[in-house]
Design a protein around this nucleic acid. Sequence first.
DNA 1: CCGATTTAGATGCATTTGCATCTATCGACC
DNA 2: GGTCGATAGATGCAAATGCATCTAAATCGG
Lengths: 153, 153
Amino acid sequence: MPAKTTESPVRLAAETWESLFRAQVAVMRKLQAAPAFKALALNEYDVLFTLSRCPSGWLRLNELNDNVLLSQSSLSRLVERLEKRGLVERTPAPEDGRGILIRLTDAGRDLQKQIGREHVRDIAALVGPALSAAEQQELLRLTEKLRAAVSVR
Amino acid sequence: MPAKTTESPVRLAAETWESLFRAQVAVMRKLQAAPAFKALALNEYDVLFTLSRCPSGWLRLNELNDNVLLSQSSLSRLVERLEKRGLVERTPAPEDGRGILIRLTDAGRDLQKQIGREHVRDIAALVGPALSAAEQQELLRLTEKLRAAVSVR
DNA sequence: CCGATTTAGATGCATTTGCATCTATCGACC
DNA sequence: GGTCGATAGATGCAAATGCATCTAAATCGG
């Protein structure tokens, strides 16, 4: 019998999460140190990135908030900063008088692409040597499954 | 030929990291919302937890800093806050006049245990239903491997 | 042994963050 | 249609954070 199967389910879940979290901290540390993030904090980049991936180009503030680990008020001000810097645009949502829509400006799109290129290289340089392609695919699958299960609502 | 193997290595690494990061955000959101973290921010709990796991009981500030995603100065002040609340103790390091050693007080240990119990339950409630035991073990293995590879310096 | 460099941690200060609250709109229900 | 609770986002304010810098101690090179 493999040793680990003697663990309790609760303990296994806790250790798994702890390990995932620490790996995230270790990788993020390195990524944040990249010169690209002198110009734009990682959270700010992340908002630009999320907008760039959105098919319609427009996202609601509260949709953005699902992706980023920030409170609603902090995100509201983050977007305000991005708008002041000319990287995003805000418009009142046409179908919902309470909401706003946000999208990249051309400048925002350019900056996202520029930082993104370097960011992707940094990621590959960290993750590539650490895990085989098959392991990466498995890690991708497991984290997608975890996210999906946790995000049900 | 499986579809995913047509991806470039760089793209695979980027997608893997993105997925890991989003999963972490989704889980962390839920965990942070737990009532236990009204009393103590998650970063603060994390420091208490790390100290509780340390065999000697004492840790240097810069050792703590490897575990937490905080700048050195922020961690310094976080520990200062914990000390003010009577949860940790600081002593000058005996072997290095520049350094300090930190350990839990009894109150700190008690609070860590109390929050920890609830925290572990919350983790299990989120992760347990999302992945089978075998999947959790594999996720644990992969994230440990990733962390180890990234942390070499 | 001495000066130069590096390392550990603290601190001043501006920025960012979160909590609580506020306003306005939406949706449900009668 | 009018009232009531829920939801989207903004804002005042106190607390936390990061950057740059500072001090002191360790380490290195001669």
